[in-house]
């Protein structure tokens, strides 16, 4: 797939201008995608926020060191100060440090659950679409049946069954979230399987596995990548929701949803520093992933690329 693609907005060298024709620049598909992606300023902002959140959550604790294992109720509910820039929580944890720890958990769950969801969904959808017939019907009816269960209800049910830890949250959310990528990939596969190059592979005796892993799945990568970014955002919201409902990780572990839930218990006490930071972190991160997802969709969708 290293064919020449039309590129817009790039300066065209005089020696590259075909007489009487449109301007073209030869280059890899990924360069073109990147070019379109970086044109989207919101995407750059989103990417910046994601990088910041990753650094804040994973590097931050090495710079801003706080005690996040053992609490100290004697300094509970202190307001923001130099010693505690975001105050302390209900059992005396430094809230800024808590936010970093919560970010680790939220982002880990977000990324890992998205990977599980995409991995399972892609395999399921591609196999279903490629196999067709009764196999496709059965596999897709299973997806339909599971999709009919409200996302939150399924999450709460699974969350109640499993003992909650970060790993189990990842599995629970991943198990619920693979349905949408499965349907998307299955749709793409239905389109791809009748293409000439797929037919050619079959004529030349290529195995189904080869068709699946060398030709179908690689050509759905655009759909997969875009969906994966949204899956991360959805997973972060899901873990926040579960934690908000009390099915999150038990202390001393935490995540942003749990922090928000704890903070809202004190909404009438005026401890705003327990509410806004966690809420803002969730909103910013989710919006950032959505910006990136939107931009990737634009970049990967040929019809939306400028020519």
């Amino acid at each position: 797939m290293s064919t020449a693609q039309p590129v817009a907005g790039l300066p065209l060298g005089s020696d590259a201008i075909p007489e009487g024709g449109e301007g073209y620049r030869s280059g890899s598909m990924w360069r073109l995608i990147l070019a379109v992606f970086i044109e989207n300023r919101l995407a750059i902002v989103g990417l910046g926020i994601i990088v910041f959140m990753l650094l804040f959550s994973f590097i931050g604790p090495f710079i801003y060191r706080t005690q996040q294992v053992f609490n100290n109720p004697g300094i509970a509910h202190l307001g923001p100060s130099l010693a505690h820039p975001l105050g302390t929580d209900q059992v005396g944890y430094d809230n800024l440090g808590r936010l970093m720890l919560g970010g680790q958990s939220s982002l880990e769950v977000g990324f890992a659950a998205a990977i599980i969801a995409v991995f399972v969904g892609v395999i399921w959808g591609a196999v279903s679409g490629l196999a067709g017939g009764i196999v496709d019907t059965v596999m897709m009816r299973i997806v339909d049946a599971l999709l009919a269960i409200p996302f939150l209800v399924a999450l709460i049910l699974l969350g109640a069954i499993f003992t909650t830890s970060t790993l189990e949250l990842i599995i629970v959310i991943g198990l619920v979230a693979w349905l949408v990528p499965a349907r998307l990939v299955r749709g793409e596969t239905l389109s791809l399987r009748v293409r000439e190059y797929v037919q050619a592979v079959r004529v030349m005796g290529g195995s189904t596995r080869r068709v699946l892993f060398r030709h179908i799945i690689p050509n759905t990568v655009g759909v997969i990548v875009v969906n994966a970014t949204f899956q991360v955002a959805d997973a972060i919201i899901a873990v926040a929701t579960l934690s908000y409902l009390g099915i999150g990780v038990p202390p001393p572990a935490t995540n942003w949803g749990g922090e928000l839930s704890n903070g809202l218990s004190y909404v009438y006490a005026g401890y705003w520093w327990l509410i806004y930071p966690a809420g803002v972190a969730i909103v910013l991160t989710v919006v950032a992933f959505n910006f990136v997802g939107d931009a990737l969709r634009d970049a990967l969708e040929v019809r939306l690329q400028k020519r």
Binding site: N71, P73, V91
Partner: peptide, 19 residues
Amino acid sequence: QGSVALTNEMTALQSTAQQ
């Protein structure tokens, strides 16, 4: 679950006991 006071008590006890 459901009681903030109880959660705080248990969290504090957990922390103290190990620390």
